[in-house]
Nucleic acid binder design. Structure first.
Lengths: 150, 150
DNA sequence: CCTGAAATATTGCCAGA
DNA sequence: TCTGGCAATATTTCAGG
């Protein structure tokens, strides 16, 4: 299902998702209709999940990246807590982690001040939250959601 | 520069980047040429950084997410180490963090076994790496790169 | 910064291999 | 699953407000 031609199509779309189908077909050497058929099929099969625009965080005052480890209360209902965290604005990722049975969040805020506000007003006020540990990012060398295509 | 109409355009593209321009123009109530002009301008100004396809990691054997904290050797050249880490396949993010003066990595591997291989063969073998701490993800409640548009 | 018109290009459907 | 044809749409440029 994910043969060489589909891999080639996906690699092209990973670079530049918003290009005409006809352009893709030229690069892979198939008729446009064949490429369209393949892409539609991959969308329906859930291989392709969607298409996103990549915005420059600086231009939207979301320069500050931080990761927050959440230690839940011993009696906390984990799925509930996960949902509550996921619903907070500027929390981009919520992962349930092994080891300490806690959550790891990725957040994007304007600066460390707004990060602090978020912690105090939105996170530590949740009942199920016992404590937190914040890892502030000083600089980002690499940041992509592009997975490796074998 | 990022006025109400551009915000509306960006919100549409955040949902579904690969849609015809004419469709966007219908939704925002402008002529297609006006929308094209606005999008091109935002691309040139670096407000829009690009367009990406979102692939289903499970279909490419990249289901296992993990975060790895790297403690560098005291005498390590930090920029060099950052570049080395960023070059490794399946490392999606490399952040330089405050506090412990280390790196935080986000990785995607097939399973915990391949994660272990990566640590042993590719990461701990780097001279500048003193020690590591791995946070394995059991489940992901939310994972997006979509920043909040004010 | 917008509209509207015109030329060019793409999409998406279908028949046939 | 592919190609090629064709009608419907979309893109892009440009003149003008």
């Amino acid at each position: 299902m994910i043969d060489k031609k589909n891999m080639k199509i996906l690699k092209i779309l990973q670079e530049k998702a918003r290009i005409p189908n006809a352009e893709v077909s030229r690069q892979v050497g198939l008729a446009p209709s064949a490429v369209l058929e393949r892409i539609r099929k991959m969308e329906n099969q859930g291989i392709i999940d969607g298409y996103e625009v990549r915005l420059n965080p600086e231009r939207f005052s979301r320069k500050q990246v931080a990761f927050i480890e959440i230690m839940p209360q011993p009696d906390a209902h984990i799925p509930d807590l996960g949902e509550k965290l996921a619903a907070i604005a500027d929390i981009l990722e919520v992962h349930y982690t092994a080891g300490n049975d806690g959550f790891l969040l990725k957040v994007r805020t304007t600066d460390t001040e707004t990060l602090g506000e978020m912690l105090q007003k939105k996170i530590t006020t949740i009942d199920e939250v016992l404590s937190t540990r914040t890892i502030t990012v000083l600089s980002t060398i690499k940041e992509t959601s592009r997975i490796t295509i074998d």
